[in-house]
């Protein structure tokens, strides 16, 4: 970046003090245009900077403030309570339950999504030369652009124990019908199914992008060497796919840890308050939402947010480190 800039712009702005030569009659002022250029630069970033500051960085710092105070949005005074909020939090069984649910959810969704996306990408790549490949790709991707609430409606119907599609399918396969969203065992897996359906297309496309960066002749050379099928995948494709796979895994993790909308809509409505039945689908994001905006316990919700923040930040950092080390990076 700096290389290109240095070619473009007079280097005065960052050139260290030019060796002052008193013998020269002209004064070496910086070009007035440099100052203008700099001001223009600041002017151009100002609109976005302001938004990021007020709505992202500001709140991010403020979060830690609230978490350590006994604090109420409507009252003017607040009181420093140190780790008190966290102490309360750690004594709440529902907090631990939400962490457990989140972990359960993430641990299942991540590998399923990743493997399915990888398989779909390989299939789509396999059929790249055949007609209709683009349409298939678009249809697999389509769920990702659909609004969550709108499609949740039909999925609630699909998961209906009596006349939904899901049980109809099970009946065809001669499997016992399930209670799906109404069952404490199956409610969270139902949400998982929706999530995989809704998001796998995105990761498929990311995998396809990763596959596209693998030069064709590498694979052709492997074929010339007689590596086919599983061997070609394991020895050639997989090592080359490693970075992008890791990238996808982390991305899926970060996104699934923050799932909110589909849990809220799928488990709300006819099945009582969201997060049910019996807290079976209460994950961290849902609990934060409920604590803050239903029970107005902002300090406690902030403490939870801090925990979530830490977990996700750790994941993100790992991802950035990996992404920087490998080529796949945008």
């Amino acid at each position: 970046m700096s290389n290109r800039l240095s070619r473009l712009v007079p280097a005065t702005a960052e050139t260290p003090v030019r060796s002052a030569k008193p013998s020269h009659p002209e004064k070496h002022w910086r070009l007035p245009t440099d100052w203008r250029e700099m001001l223009i630069g600041y002017g151009l970033i100002l609109p976005s900077f302001w938004v990021f500051l007020v709505f992202y960085y500001g709140p991010a710092f403020f979060l830690f403030y609230i978490a350590f105070f006994h604090w109420n949005i409507f009252a003017s005074q607040s009181q420093f309570v140190g780790l008190h909020n966290f102490a309360i939090l750690f004594h709440q069984p529902v907090f631990w339950l939400s962490l457990f649910n989140t972990a359960y959810y993430v641990v299942l969704v991540v590998p399923v999504t990743t493997l399915l996306a990888l398989a779909l990408a390989l299939l789509l790549r396999e059929s790249a030369g055949l007609r209709g490949g683009g349409v298939t790709r678009a249809l697999v991707f389509l769920p990702h652009v659909t609004p969550v609430v709108a499609t949740s409606i039909i999925w609630v119907w699909i998961f209906n124990p009596n006349f939904g599609l899901a049980n109809a399918l099970l009946r065809v396969l001669h499997l016992p019908a399930l209670n799906w969203l109404a069952s404490t065992h199956w409610a969270l897996p139902s949400v998982m199914i929706y999530t995989v359906w809704h998001s796998v297309g995105l990761y498929t496309v990311l995998f396809l992008a990763g596959l596209a960066t693998i030069p064709r002749h590498v694979l052709e050379a492997a074929q010339m060497d007689g590596a086919r099928g599983w061997l070609a995948f394991r020895r050639i494709l997989w090592p080359l796919m490693g970075p992008i796979t890791f990238f996808v895994v982390i991305l899926v993790s970060i996104n699934t840890m923050q799932t909110f909308s589909q849990i809220y809509t799928l488990t709300g409505g006819p099945h009582g308050g969201a997060g049910g039945p019996a807290f079976a689908t209460t994950t961290d994001s849902l609990l934060i939402y409920q604590t803050a905006f239903l029970y107005l316990h902002f300090s406690l919700a902030s403490a939870m947010s801090v925990v979530l923040f830490g977990l996700i930040l750790a994941l993100t950092l790992v991802q950035k480190l990996i992404a920087d080390r490998f080529v796949f990076y945008r």
């Binding site: 976005s48 990021f52 007020v54 709505f55 992202y56 960085y57 500001g58 709140p59 991010a60 403020f62 979060l63 609230i66 949005i73 970060i254 840890m257 923050q258 909110f260 961290d284 994001s285 934060i288 939402y289 803050a292 905006f293 902002f298 919700a301 902030s302 947010s305 801090v306 979530l308 923040f309 996700i312 930040l313 993100t316 950092l317 950035k320």
Partner: peptide
């Protein structure tokens, strides 16, 4: 800006609401 990308949205809702 990279940093903004890394901020977890769900964890920011409470302070964002306050803002």
């Amino acid at each position: 800006i990279l940093g903004v990308m890394m901020l977890p949205q769900q964890a920011l809702l409470v302070p964002q609401y306050v803002a």
